[in-house]
Computed example of a mutant assay.
Amino acid sequence: MSTPEALLARFERFYSSLDESRLAELPEVYHSEIRFIDPVKEHQGLKALDAYFRQSLSTMSYCYFVITDLQHNDRQAYASWNMTYAHPRLHRGRVLTLEGVSQLRFAEQRIIYQRDYYDLGAMLYEHIPLIGPAVLHLKQRLQ
């Protein structure tokens, strides 16, 4: 029987160096009925999650996560993380970092629910020519 600690170790290992070769490990981490929600879209089921990761990773130069804090009980966990990534069309392909939090729920020794919270503007919009300066200007005005 898998413990939450073992499952979270698999989760952390999976995201420590995320590329298409790691996607074979999805069934070890995620339940077949996974509900995955992030600021971009919601995905239902392992097949949909695999397709989402494949599409996302195919456009990135690289991507990895460092878990900075992890709180859990037997049914759920909250993971704070830093994502480091590079995309050729964002910020001239330079390395970018994004902070976020994932809410995780467990079923049958797998993650059945994941909701990611992060600033989509900081991840994407701020790094697009013409749009980026406008987004940053709006953020400054709101402070």
Score class of each variant (00 low, 15 high):
1 M>F: 05
4 P>I: 01
5 E>I: 08
7 L>R: 05
7 L>M: 07
9 A>Y: 02
10 R>S: 08
11 F>Q: 01
11 F>W: 13
12 E>W: 00
19 D>R: 12
19 D>Q: 08
19 D>Y: 00
23 L>G: 10
24 A>N: 05
26 L>D: 12
28 E>Y: 09
31 H>Y: 07
32 S>T: 11
35 R>F: 08
39 P>T: 08
40 V>N: 11
47 K>S: 11
48 A>S: 09
49 L>W: 02
49 L>I: 09
56 S>R: 11
59 T>W: 04
61 S>Q: 14
63 C>R: 07
64 Y>E: 12
64 Y>W: 10
68 T>Q: 07
70 L>D: 02
78 Y>E: 11
79 A>Q: 08
81 W>K: 04
85 Y>W: 06
85 Y>D: 04
85 Y>M: 01
86 A>P: 11
92 R>H: 14
92 R>C: 12
93 G>K: 10
95 V>M: 03
96 L>Q: 04
97 T>I: 01
99 E>A: 14
100 G>R: 09
101 V>E: 12
103 Q>N: 06
104 L>F: 07
104 L>W: 07
104 L>G: 05
105 R>M: 12
107 A>F: 04
108 E>N: 11
109 Q>I: 00
111 I>C: 06
112 I>N: 07
118 Y>A: 00
120 L>M: 14
120 L>G: 02
121 G>K: 09
125 Y>V: 00
130 L>E: 04
131 I>R: 07
132 G>P: 09
136 L>V: 02
137 H>N: 13
137 H>A: 15
140 Q>T: 07
143 Q>N: 15
